[in-house]
Structures are given as C-alpha cells and as structure tokens.
Design a binder for these strands. Structure first.
Length: 528
RNA sequence: GCGCCCGUAGCUCAGCUGGAUAGAGCAUCAGACUUCGAAUCUGCAGGUCAGAGGUUCGAAUCCUCUCGGGCGUGCCA
C-alpha cells in the first residue's frame, strides 16, 4: 500500500537526518508519522504533518524540519512533487506512473490486492444468538448484517474467523414457550409468563419441538439474508447434556474463585474487574443464566481460539464485565475478549414509528423487511451506520428505487461500468490497455486515488471492528465514479489512446467495487 | 445514586488513534439528456459540532463539569 510505503520512507529519512536520535526512534516506534488524505486537491494525494508532530519533541521549527524531509522525498521519483505549506505540512503528489502501476496490480491480483499474507489470530465470533422462541426481528438483522460483514472483513484481513450462533435452547424461556404451545393446543388462555404474540400459533401445525420450529425458521431467514454461520452451538446438547456447566463451576471452585453465601454459590468476578460478585447457583439449587454462559465461553477457550468477539445488544451491556471476568479467570488472561455493542433499531414508515413488540404480535419480522425491501437494501442500511449509534430505519425510504436510495446508487455505478464495456464490444473497440500516459483530469485522479485506498479501508475496519467504514467508503467510490462518468467520456473512437487509458481505469474500479460489494454481501448486478 | 452509550445542516447519519475552509444522502430552490444508461451530474442555500471551562502551535475529536436522550444497574433470561 502506497501510504504505508510513504510512511516508511518518511521514517527512514527521519532516521538519516537525525542520526538515529533516540527521540526519533521512539516516535517512529510509538506514534509514527501520520499519513493523511487531504480534502483539497491542491494539498496533494497524500499529506503528512510529521514535521509538526516532531517540532514539539525536537524543539525545532516545524517548517525547517519539513523542508529537510521534502528535499529527501523529492529524490524518489515515485513522488512527482513535494510541497511544504504554512506551519509545516508536507504535501505529496504521486507520479502518474505509480498510479498506473497500482491500478494494474489491482487488476492482476483481483480480490487479493494488498491483502495481508501473514496469518493473524484465531477468532471465534458470536453474533445474533437470538432465543429460538420466535422469529428474528430487525434488531437481530442489524447484528446479523454487521456480524456477517465484519467476519468477511476480518477474514480478508488475515484472521481465521469461526462464526457461531449460540442457541439458547435450555432455559426458562423454553419452558415458557412449551407451556404457551400446550395452552394454545388445548384452547386455554396463554399463561402470564408465556408468549402472547400471534406468531406462536404458527407452531401448532408443526410436529416437533416448538424450539426446533423457530430455529429452522431463523436459519431460513438468515439464509435469505446471506448470513452464514460455521456452527449453531446448542446450549442443551453441548453444555447441559455433557455436564459442562457443572465442570466449569468445579473448575472455578478449584481455583478458589467461588464462595458460598446465603445458600448460594458466588463467583469472585470482582477479582477480574467486575463491579460486584455474581451468583452461579441460586439458593434454590438452580443455575443462573450466567453459569451456562461461562461454560460456553470455556468451550471457546478450549477450542483453541486466542480471541473471542461477541456482538451484544445494548440492553446486554451490563453483562459484559462479568463475562470478561469469567474469560480472564478461565484463560488466565491469555485469551482476548472483545465486545461490540449494537444499539437498537427503531423502525419507521414515512416518519411514523412501527412497533415491534414481541408480546403484542404486531411485530415486524426481519423476514418481512427483507421481503419488502430486499436483502441488498436491508444489508446496506443496517451496515451503513456505526453499531454504536441508535438507528432509525425508515422502510418507505429504503424501498424507494430512486436516487434517494444509496444501494441503487452504488449498484448503478457498477452496472454503468459494465455498460461501458458492453458498448466497447458493440463498437468493436479492442481493449488492449496499451496507451501513452496522458495528464489526468481531476475526476480521473480523484477516482484513482480513492480506489487505491481500499485495502487500507478494509484493514481499518477490521482493526477497529467497524464494518460501517467499508459501507461508507463504497458510497464515496460510487460518487466519484459517477462524476468521472459525466466528465470523462470513456469511449472515443477519435482518441484511442485516451479510450484505452480510461478503459483501464474502469476495469480497475470495477474490480475493486466487486471485491467491496462481496465483503458487504451485496449483489453486484451487471444490469439493472 | 452509580455505570455504559448517544447529542454534528430541516431529517437520517459520516468524520472522533488531535491537523489545513466540518462532509454525504434526503428534503428545498435553480440548471444539464441528438453523445458510453438522467436510477446520473452541476450549482444555490442550509452549522454557536448540546453548553461551559481546560490541555496546545492546532480541538467536532483528548480531559473536567453542566444540560438533554437511551440503556443497564436481580439469587431474570
């Protein structure tokens, strides 16, 4: 990646200029020279405030430092021009040869362009994990879309990712569901602690266990949503039937991390950062919900993962510290534990709130949303916004097949590229990619520089666990492509040199867009 | 009370590991189709980045406090 290369070059220059000064070495090791993408074209393709970062440390004039760095950078012919501006910004303009070279690499390496080769950590990533007592709702859809997208991103970034859905098939809610179904079958009123939604009646025609019905239904919905899992982990079969809950509690006991108080068994979670100790076995002899969850996380550790990532709804955030405490206790702090918090989704239609209470039966299911606006649009809207931000989702807006809708905007860009290729064939314009370099138009240069950034965007998203970055980036690309399309006619039979160059750009952008859409699980249609 | 999250354009949201004049989409208004798809593009307008202090060459971004909203704070799951 050009930005990393530039950073390394700057670092090397700094070492040379300042004779391996200790402060410099420390700066390089800890912070490093920041490489930025200026908002304005006149500030270059890349920019670094490195001189200003160092001015404080070295107690020197930033403008002078910048001048020294500039002089060295200019010796590298990859950098067409290097400017020093005002307080000490260094602005770097790439040579056209470098840009063409990178575009060529994108075409050759396809989705592997700049993909990290080294193997990173083994991650077990849990998301959705809805109770199998009803259909998935839009909130689950958010975890599903973000989780699925993030796992694709993490895989691209070199992590080994195992995607898991925890099936809560052994708790009180299962009993309550069964009681509800029993009552309905006998035409009796649904018990107070039962499930009152209309959807429960769907089970009545089903022969097997109600839970299996809903689990299958959920799997079906997820499949339509292009969300896959490597494993559905049954609490009942994997934990209770195998006695794992009891075992993990014995484990904690033997480590001296439990105590009895008021007839209950407690876990000393405060020793691992929790706010208070937690009950494992209630005074009535039953496990709390927490106990099987500890056992579950113990299996994650035992299965050899060195990083655990969970996607929790915001209503479960109070639960994080105790799980983390358990993981730390059981792995002796060797396994990393990360939680992504997802805020809730509120559904609207034409500005009017749509209720989704499970109890009232007026709930809108994920399946219905997908049916109404399609998998592509649903995935887009649910991954375009940071997981941490509460999301207002307007069904009417997402359904519009017009310019209001960014999904179509992006897909249209892709379709347009294909349309150009098709046109070239119709006109018998041979695609050779042989051309003499021509000065770029602004729209061309903007598009190219943006495209070359894509591996970096994916890696950032992976590092920060923020898939929405990729979604937003995709929109930026589409915007720049449409601008390019308007101002730079690709096929011009009177200027075959420019035609070849622009075809070359189109092929590169198309390849990048295809890779990115793949990560988001959104279709890249040839035509629309 | 305590803890976590949020507060950016009329609306929905980016930008937050400190950098140059705070961005996009929608909505409003004015324009562009004999030319690769107008599902597009160009332009106008729209802001005390909730507020107040602080840190520094530089703060939407970091720190403190205040206000407003959501969630959590069970021997519930």
């Amino acid at each position: 990646m050009l930005n990393i290369e530039l950073q390394n070059n700057v670092h090397t220059i700094l070492k040379n200029i300042f004779n391996e000064n200790e402060q410099i070495l420390d700066f390089i090791k800890t912070k490093g020279a920041k490489i930025e993408y200026p908002k304005e074209r006149k500030f270059g393709d890349y920019s670094t405030p490195a001189a200003m970062q160092l001015a404080k440390i070295l107690k020197k004039n930033p403008f002078e430092i910048a001048g020294q760095i500039k002089a060295e950078l200019e010796k590298n012919d990859k950098y067409e021009k290097v400017d020093v501006v005002k307080p000490g910004f260094i602005n770097i303009f790439l040579s056209n040869e470098v840009l063409f070279h990178e575009l060529k690499t994108i075409q050759e390496q396809k989705e592997n362009y700049s993909k990290p080769k080294e193997q990173k950590e083994k991650i077990i990533f849990e998301y959705v994990s809805a109770n199998p007592t009803g259909p998935l709702h839009i909130g689950h859809g958010r975890w599903a879309a973000l989780g699925d997208t993030l796992s694709r991103i993490l895989k691209w970034a070199g992590y080994t990712v195992f995607r898991e859905f925890y099936v809560n098939d052994a708790g009180v809610q299962v009993k309550n569901l069964n009681k509800t179904v029993e009552a309905l079958k006998n035409n009796e009123p649904v018990p107070e602690d039962g499930y009152h939604g209309e959807y429960v009646k769907e089970v009545l025609d089903y022969g097997g266990e109600p839970i299996d019905f809903f689990l299958e239904q959920q799997k079906q919905t997820l499949s339509e949503f292009r969300v896959e899992f490597d494993n559905y982990f049954s609490e009942k079969k994997e934990l209770h039937d195998k006695n794992n809950v009891k075992k993990v509690i014995e484990d904690l006991k033997s480590k001296g991390l439990t105590y009895e108080q008021e007839d209950a068994l407690w876990f000393k979670s405060t020793e691992y950062g929790d706010d208070k100790d937690r009950v494992l076995i209630k005074s009535d002899g039953n496990y709390t919900y927490f106990s099987p969850d500890i056992a579950y996380h113990k299996t994650k550790i035992n299965r050899g993962y060195n990083k655990i990532i969970n996607f929790f709804g915001a209503d479960h955030h109070g639960y994080i510290k105790r799980i983390k405490a358990a993981v730390n206790a059981l792995s002796e702090k060797k396994v990393k534990f990360d939680v992504i918090i997802g805020q809730l989704v509120s559904l609207f239609r034409e500005g009017e709130p749509v209720r989704l209470s499970k109890r009232t039966g007026t709930m809108i299911t994920l399946s219905e949303v997908i049916k109404e606006i399609g998998t592509d649009a649903t995935r887009y809207f649910l991954t375009a916004i940071k997981a941490d931000t509460p999301l207002d989702f307007d069904l009417a807006l997402a359904q519009k097949k017009s310019s209001d809708n960014p999904v179509f905007y992006i897909q249209y860009a892709f379709a347009r590229m294909n349309s150009i290729v098709k046109k070239a064939q119709e006109k018998n314009v041979e695609i050779t990619f042989k051309f003499e370099p021509v000065e770029f138009q602004d729209a061309e240069r903007d598009l190219i520089v943006k495209i070359l950034k894509y591996p970096e965007e994916i890696l950032d998203a992976a590092k920060q666990l923020e898939p929405h970055r990729v979604t937003n980036y995709l929109l930026d690309i589409a915007t720049l492509f449409h601008k390019f399309y308007e101002s730079c006619k690709v096929i011009d039979e009177n200027d075959l040199n420019t035609t070849q160059m622009r075809m070359f750009i189109v092929f590169s952008v198309r390849q990048a867009l295809e890779t990115l859409l793949g990560l988001l699980g959104i279709n890249a249609p040839e035509r629309m």
